[in-house]
Amino acid sequence: MNITSFKALMVDKQSDRFEIGIRDLSLADLPQENVTIRVSYSSINYKDGLAATPDGRVLRAYPMIPGIDLAGTVVSSSDSRWREGDEVIATGYGLGTDYFGGYSEYARIRGDWLTALPQGLTLREAMIIGTAGFTAALSLHRLESNGLVPGAGPVLVLGATGGVGSHAVAMLARAGYDVTASTGKSSEHDYLRMLGAREIISREALQAPEGSRRALNSEHWAAAVDPVGGASLPYVLSTIRYGGSVALSGLTGGGEFPGTVFPFILRGVNLLGIDSVYCPSPMRETLWQRIASDWKPARLDAMVSDEVSLADLPAALPAILKGGVRGRTVVRIAQE
C-alpha cells in the first residue's frame, strides 16, 4: 500500500489538558495487528460521546482514536480468513476505547474481531445499525431464547427514540411482536409509529406512583428491552408477566436501581444482561445474518437523524450526551 498519510479523530488527555481534533497519521501510527481496513463508515454511540469528554471515563489510555463501530474494506491482511477487497464490519472488543477505533480513514485490527458484511446490507446500512442495532438484535435473541414468542403479549421498549430503542422497536415489529414504545419526547410519536410501535407511553408512566412501595404491580408486559436502566427498572420488573424477561443493555438512566427480589422469586421474571462488546464471534455472525434478512428494519434509512463527515465529528459528538439525538448519526469516513 502506498499510503503516505491519512486523517483520524484523536483524543488526548495529559494532566489537566484535554484535546480533541483531526490529525494526520501514517500507517506506522496504527497498532501492529493483522488486518488493515479502509474505513468507509462509522456511527455515533453514547460511548463515543463519553470518549470525547475529559471526564467520560470510558477510555483506557491516551491518545485514542474513538469510534466503537466501523465498516469498510480490507486493504491488506496476514490473516488467512480475510483478503484484500473483503467488506467487513467491526464492533465491540474494546474498539474505540481500548484500541484505536473507527474514526479514522484507516484502521488496523485483529482478524478475530471482524464479521463479513452479510448479503442484504451495504456498508452504510451496517453503520446505521452498528453497535446500537446489534445490541437490539442481541436483546431480541436473548428474549426469544428465554421463551418470548409473537402473540405472548405486548413488549415494552424503553428509551425508544435512541439508537438501541429505535432498532428494538423496528426489529420487534418486523418479527411480529406487539410493541409499546416509551419515550419522553412527545414530538416523536409519528417516528415511533413509523418504526412499528402500536402504542406509545410516556417515560413518567414507568415510574411507581408517588408514595407507593409495592414490590409487585399488575402484570402487563410479556417482555421489555431496556437500554436505560436506573429508576424505571424496578417498576418495569414489577409489571412483567409471569416467566417474562427484561433485556437490560444500558445505563443512561443511572447505574443503580432500588429493586426487590419479588419479581424474580414470585413471578419467575428474568433479568437478562446484554453485553455486545465481547459477544462471541459465532453469535455475531448469526445475528448479523438475521439483521440483514428477517430482522432488517423496513424503514432503516428513516432512523438516520444526521450524516456527518470525519471533520464534523468534534462538533457532532456532544449532542448524543444531551439526549437530543433521535435514532442514529452515521459518520462518513472515506473520501470518495
Rank of each mutant, 00 (worst) to 15 (best):
N2R: 09
K7R: 15
M10V: 15
K13F: 03
R17I: 14
E19P: 06
G21F: 05
G21K: 08
S26R: 15
A28E: 14
A28Y: 10
E33D: 12
I37Q: 04
Y46W: 14
L50T: 01
G56Q: 08
L59C: 15
M64W: 08
I65G: 00
G67Y: 04
D69A: 12
G72S: 00
T73I: 15
V75S: 09
V75K: 01
V75Y: 03
S76Q: 14
S77R: 09
S77Y: 11
V88T: 05
A90P: 00
Y93S: 09
L95M: 13
G96N: 03
T97P: 04
F100Y: 13
G101W: 04
G102N: 01
Y103C: 03
S104L: 04
Y106M: 11
R110L: 14
R110T: 04
G111L: 09
A116K: 13
T122P: 00
E125D: 13
M127H: 03
M127V: 10
M127Y: 07
I128H: 02
I129N: 02
G133F: 01
H141M: 09
N146W: 07
V149C: 10
G151K: 01
G151M: 04
V155H: 00
L156A: 03
V157Q: 00
V157W: 00
V169C: 11
V169Q: 07
L172C: 06
G176D: 06
V179R: 02
T183L: 07
L192G: 01
R193F: 12
L195V: 10
G196I: 07
G196L: 06
I201V: 14
E204N: 13
A208F: 06
A208N: 09
A208S: 14
P209N: 12
P209W: 10
E210G: 06
R214K: 14
A224R: 05
A224P: 03
A224D: 05
V225N: 06
V225H: 02
D226F: 02
V228W: 01
P234Y: 12
S238L: 12
S245H: 02
V246D: 03
T252E: 00
G254T: 13
F262Q: 01
L266M: 14
L266N: 09
V269L: 00
N270P: 06
L271C: 03
L271D: 04
L272D: 03
C279F: 09
S281R: 15
S281F: 13
R284P: 00
R284Y: 03
R284N: 09
L287F: 08
W288M: 10
R290V: 04
S293Y: 08
W295L: 08
D301F: 11
S305G: 15
E307Y: 06
L310F: 10
A315I: 10
L317H: 02
A319K: 07
I320Q: 01
K322Q: 15
R328K: 15
V330N: 05
Q335F: 09
E336I: 01
